[in-house]
């Protein structure tokens, strides 16, 4: 664990990888550190944002260093099922890249459980990592200016669902009718860090 400075109100904790991030994030949300107002996981880091009126950065750093990360990132997270119509415009390209046919891409995508590692890019956009074989799919060489909401996509080692229309460079393999982000729902974001996801095919 490396603790890096991030100004007068935050600390950035750098870790070896996603599993360590999920473990530390789970521990810090289960037992919050006093004066920490936000905990933001990412691919290799966890940002701790403090309220300077309540605590100091030195105390927070000490508390984080004494935190025991939760092992087994996939224990007990809520399971969300997302029905998907696999008719994305990039499905054939993804299949070609993986050297399989489209049906095999769908079989692999629905055949594993995924875990939300972290969110970013837009409110409610979760970066999903598979329990099984890792995926490696390049981004599109030119991003789309408009990706429709509900698009199910792949890029790098992650899968994701676009919460709303936005530009995007991920490979689109399908679409779901489930609103992954809805400000009038509690919780607004379906795909929160630690949530497990199972994709099912709608024919």
């Amino acid at each position: 664990m490396r603790v890096l400075p991030s100004g007068s109100t935050a600390l950035l904790v750098e870790l070896d990888g996603l599993d360590e991030v999920l473990g530390l994030y789970a521990a810090l949300t289960a037992e919050p550190v006093e004066g920490v107002v936000d905990v933001v996981p990412a691919a290799r880091t966890v940002l701790l944002v403090t309220d300077p009126a309540v605590t100091g950065l030195a105390a927070v750093e000490q508390a984080v260093r004494q935190t025991t990360p939760r092992s087994g990132r996939r224990d007990g997270g809520e399971l969300v099922e997302l029905p998907v119509v696999y008719d994305g415009s990039d499905l054939a390209d993804v299949a070609a890249h993986l050297g399989v046919d489209a049906a095999e891409v769908v079989r692999r995508h629905t055949g594993t459980e995924w875990t939300v590692a972290f969110c970013g890019f837009a409110p409610g956009f979760g970066y999903l990592t598979p329990d099984g074989e890792p995926w490696h799919v390049p981004r599109r060489s030119s991003p789309r200016t408009k990706v429709p909401p509900g698009s199910v996509a792949l890029a790098g080692e992650f899968s994701g669902v676009y919460p709303r229309e936005s530009p995007g460079g991920w490979q689109l393999i399908g679409r779901t009718d489930v609103a992954v982000f809805d400000v009038d729902r509690e919780p607004a974001a379906l795909l929160r860090p630690g949530v497990r996801v199972r994709f099912t095919e709608v024919r």
Binding site: Y25, T29, A188, A189, P193
Partner: peptide
């Protein structure tokens, strides 16, 4: 909106 960074929601 403090405390919602983990959901991709900025302050």
């Amino acid at each position: 909106r403090p405390g919602q960074g983990a959901l991709g929601i900025g302050r």
